[in-house]
Simulated scan of single mutants.
Amino acid sequence: MQQLSFPAYSFRLKSSENKRYIFDVIRKKFLVLTPEEWVRQHILQWLLTEKGYPLSLINVEKEIKVGNTRKRYDIVIFNKDGTLLLIVECKAPAVKITQETFDQIARYNLQLQADYLMVSNGLSHYYCQVDTVAERYDFLRSLPDYERQVK
């Protein structure tokens, strides 16, 4: 798989029936290793090891209703009080991050109401804090560490 702009992490990989699989520590199962899954697993490791977000507060690929359609978010992280802290949208490295990508995560956030958003294709990462009062997104250099966000 392609080298991403994250630290090197050790993953559990396996091959079966000409397919490669990667172990997801959140869902506790092996998943087909697609380019997007490669990015998602790097982001999960980065959030856990570099940013200190607790594994128990992370949710991966769950269905939500946005308007009249059903969508799946990639990663969400909750505060200890159950409110939503962060939504992460993962794209494959070959997918360019565009305004459409930000529109997608903004639509999800209308439903979910997270404090922070992250969009990444594994090579480029964008972070923003949601300012609900001013109804805008403030872009950040990185996500704050979990300890700074505890509610």
Rank of each mutant, 00 (worst) to 15 (best):
L143Y: 04
D115C: 10
I77H: 06
V133K: 15
D115P: 06
K51M: 09
H125M: 07
W46M: 04
Q149N: 11
F6A: 02
Q2M: 02
F30H: 10
E61R: 01
F11M: 12
D138F: 09
V66H: 03
S142T: 12
F11D: 13
V32L: 06
T132A: 13
E36D: 07
F78M: 03
I105R: 02
Q104R: 07
Y21W: 15
R40M: 07
C128Y: 06
Y9K: 11
Y127F: 09
G67Y: 03
V95R: 07
L110M: 08
T34Y: 02
L86S: 07
L84R: 02
R136G: 13
N18K: 12
P35I: 04
F6Q: 03
F6I: 05
Y9E: 10
F102D: 05
Y9H: 08
M118W: 01
D24T: 00
H125C: 09
L33A: 04
I43Y: 14
V119L: 14
Q99R: 13
T34H: 05
Q2W: 00
Q113P: 10
V133F: 15
K151I: 09
E89I: 08
T69S: 13
T83V: 04
H125S: 08
T98E: 13
A106C: 13
L33V: 05
G82I: 01
L85Y: 11
V76A: 04
R27Q: 02
L4A: 08
Q149W: 13
K29V: 07
D145L: 08
I64K: 00
F102L: 10
L112S: 06
R27T: 00
V88W: 03
L123M: 09
Q129E: 11
N18G: 06
Q41N: 05
Y146W: 07
